[in-house]
Simulated scan of single mutants.
Amino acid sequence: MNLQDAITARELEILRLTVQRLRPVKLGAAIVVTHRPKPRTALVGFLAFDIPQPAAQPAQPERQSMNHIASPDSTDRGIEAAIVAAGKTAPRVTPADIEANIESWWYFTAAEGAEGAAQAGTPHSEQPPVGAASPLRLLTFCVLVLKNGFTVTGESACASPENYDRDIGRRIARENAINKVWPLMGYALREKLHAARVEV
């Protein structure tokens, strides 16, 4: 089509319909209308061009999952193994020292403690009876008696009764109790080292 020719309203409508048909083909379009001095004439330009597709991106290498990387062993024995591997030989408290300092240990749930108190004569006015579905049955205690007679406690509780497991509860309660022994024995060792330096 010669853009210098005047077009009629019908031709303009045909052009508009053509553009609509081209839209699904992802063609870009621009229409410029410039009025001429004569009343019935106009300059119309229609540009159609392919929209360039983005260049294909090179395949990205699959990211390695962090799941295959072993986390450092943060248990007491794992940390001790790391200390030994690092060649540290200065005096320190070890997991073996902790275990050697435990004279005895006791496990019970809060419900068992309450029931034992009731059997020992605690009046109901001070302690209500423990129901079969009482949350006290989900709370586990571990009492560690140390060599010098000092006691520490650890607790374990679960939010959902369905998740309660006696053995798991006892293990967690014991770990929590042992965590309280570390600072006690660390302090005692530091006092011993300090006293030795003062004497020198």
Results as ranks from 00 to 15, higher is better:
158 C>Q: 14
56 A>Q: 14
71 S>T: 09
160 S>G: 08
117 A>C: 04
79 I>P: 00
189 L>I: 11
90 A>S: 03
174 R>H: 05
167 D>I: 00
176 N>G: 13
143 V>N: 06
68 H>R: 10
159 A>H: 05
18 T>Q: 12
145 V>C: 03
127 Q>G: 05
180 K>Y: 11
187 Y>R: 13
113 G>V: 04
141 F>C: 00
147 K>M: 10
71 S>W: 13
115 E>I: 00
56 A>L: 13
63 R>D: 13
136 L>W: 00
89 T>L: 15
86 A>S: 12
48 A>T: 10
111 A>D: 07
53 Q>A: 10
112 E>W: 15
196 A>I: 02
111 A>W: 00
14 I>S: 08
200 V>M: 07
77 R>P: 01
188 A>H: 05
189 L>V: 10
45 G>K: 11
58 P>G: 14
163 N>M: 14
129 P>F: 08
58 P>I: 07
174 R>G: 00
182 W>R: 06
78 G>M: 13
43 L>Y: 11
2 N>M: 01
122 T>P: 03
134 S>L: 01
62 E>V: 15
101 N>F: 10
76 D>G: 12
4 Q>V: 10
20 Q>S: 13
86 A>Y: 08
121 G>C: 06
43 L>Q: 04
53 Q>N: 07
73 D>Y: 15
103 E>W: 15
102 I>Y: 12
190 R>Q: 03
146 L>G: 01
18 T>N: 06
190 R>Y: 02
45 G>Q: 09
163 N>F: 08
194 H>A: 08
73 D>Q: 09
173 A>K: 04
96 A>Q: 08
134 S>R: 01
4 Q>Y: 14
3 L>Y: 09
147 K>A: 14
198 V>A: 11
54 P>V: 04
81 A>C: 02
152 V>A: 07
73 D>F: 13
195 A>R: 13
60 Q>W: 00
11 E>K: 01
172 I>R: 01
3 L>M: 10
130 V>Q: 03
185 M>Q: 15
18 T>S: 07
13 E>I: 06
35 H>T: 06
73 D>E: 13
46 F>A: 13
115 E>V: 02
153 T>W: 15
141 F>I: 07
15 L>D: 02
77 R>Q: 11
30 A>C: 12
97 D>S: 07
117 A>P: 02
122 T>R: 11
133 A>Y: 09
145 V>G: 00
27 L>Q: 04
186 G>S: 08
117 A>I: 05
28 G>P: 04
144 L>C: 03
36 R>E: 04
117 A>S: 15
151 T>K: 12
62 E>Q: 15
109 T>Q: 11
106 W>P: 00
32 V>Q: 09
76 D>Q: 12
110 A>P: 00
87 G>M: 05
192 K>S: 11
178 I>E: 05
65 S>V: 04
73 D>V: 08
8 T>K: 09
37 P>Y: 04
82 A>L: 12
175 E>S: 14
89 T>W: 12
95 P>V: 08
104 S>H: 03
114 A>M: 13
124 H>R: 08
174 R>M: 05
81 A>P: 01
174 R>V: 01
120 A>C: 12
177 A>Q: 09
123 P>H: 06
116 G>W: 13
22 L>Q: 05
134 S>F: 01
33 V>Q: 11
199 E>A: 15
173 A>M: 07
